[in-house]
Design a protein around this nucleic acid. Structure first.
Lengths: 203, 203
DNA sequence: AGTACAATGAAACGAACGTTTGAATCATCC
DNA sequence: GGATGATTCAAACGTTCGTTTCATTGTACT
């Protein structure tokens, strides 16, 4: 029979969706694969068949949402550097922040990102290094070129603050709107973050 | 022999200290009682003898640090209301925030508070209700009296924002200094939070 | 039809978990 | 100094975990 089952509802997707939901709700350690596969409506062994391990599943959950963001970051940084003129700090920061602010919208990945620092530290560190390491170093290098007065170690340190602020913004306790002004649109959030963090980078 | 072992190093304290450290580092679910009692240098069964269960140990860890803060809050609110005149919003918020900002300093409780929302949701909700519920309702009532234009439901909603902002401030990712100005003293932090949140309450 | 391979299913594996038990030790008071 | 209660200890309890195994089903190609 040529009747292909409707795409997007395969076993792998169902596992990823359930993992995203449950890891976000209860955390990685507190979520059992039995509860996860039960919610997904798949067999317990399917997790190891398709992903290899529970930790590899977490990596896949992160990758599915983070990889498109990082791809867009690379495109934007490439475009900036193709201009021939060295890009300014604001432009670099916007290239880094805008994809995360605007593309991360609807999925259940944000509580996971917010809780990443609570989970088994070594595993998460390795995952983030693999998905983020080279990209981060490219942005640090670009910022260092735009900030000739700062050592590249100092630029790296300050860039970690940028990452921390971004993670809090996109993953933080935002369901209750947050501190200041009303929720505010993505564009406004981005604009304020860029101005704020650019000043910090220059300080 | 009358030589009493130096106080403060009893079995219960050692368990609480180890739990505070490990729950903060790895989270509640990912910390085993065997690792915990190993670090504390006590027998595995001592946890259940002194506390009853792993969850009750978490409650005790929270209580040891949170109870003094809440006691100070009650004292300050009592003092405000004893003046006969209705206290203003800033005074109420300061009575609520100052003990948390100034008294929570050195212990390892802050990463735990920051991660509370990541842990088994039902357990944490029960613990917070018991330690925080009545106190929170007293502050909501005081704020509602100071804000006659708002329904008490609205005051309660906004007060949750105050709690969220406070938790983030005292428990957030502060080891890397944070966003804006340099770390800033407790007094400055308090002053800015009170002004900020009072405006939000009035909005 | 029949072979080859991808995917699913039910069942079990050893390990680690929180918890309980009961005996051994320690302190305390008569 | 012997009895009493509090505390510690080693060992085991049953359960649940992530993972593995192997038989079974589904799918595609010649």
């Amino acid at each position: 029979m040529a009747a292909a089952p409707s795409p997007g509802t395969g076993t792998k997707e169902r596992i990823l969706d359930a993992a995203e939901a449950l890891f976000g709700e209860s955390g990685f350690a507190a979520t059992s694969l039995r509860a996860l596969t039960g919610q997904a409506g798949v067999n317990l062994a399917a997790v190891h068949y398709h992903f290899g391990s529970k930790e590899a599943l977490l990596a896949a959950v992160l990758e599915r949402r983070v990889a498109p963001v990082n791809r867009e970051r690379v495109l934007r940084l490439d475009a900036l550097e193709a201009h021939g003129r060295e890009p300014g700090i604001e432009a670099i920061l916007e290239a880094f922040l805008a994809p995360a602010i605007t593309m991360d919208g609807k999925s259940g990945i944000r509580p996971i990102l917010a809780r990443l620092h609570s989970e088994p530290i070594e595993l998460v560190r390795v995952i983030l290094e693999r998905q983020f390491g080279e990209l981060g170093r490219r942005f640090v290098a670009a910022l260092a070129r735009a900030l000739p007065g700062l050592s590249s170690a100092e630029v790296g340190e300050r860039f970690e603050l940028v990452v921390g602020a971004m993670l809090y913004m996109i993953g933080g306790s935002r369901e209750t709107s947050v501190l200041g002004t009303p929720p505010s649109s993505d564009g406004e959030t981005l604009e304020r973050m860029v101005a704020f963090l650019a000043a910090g980078m220059r300080a």
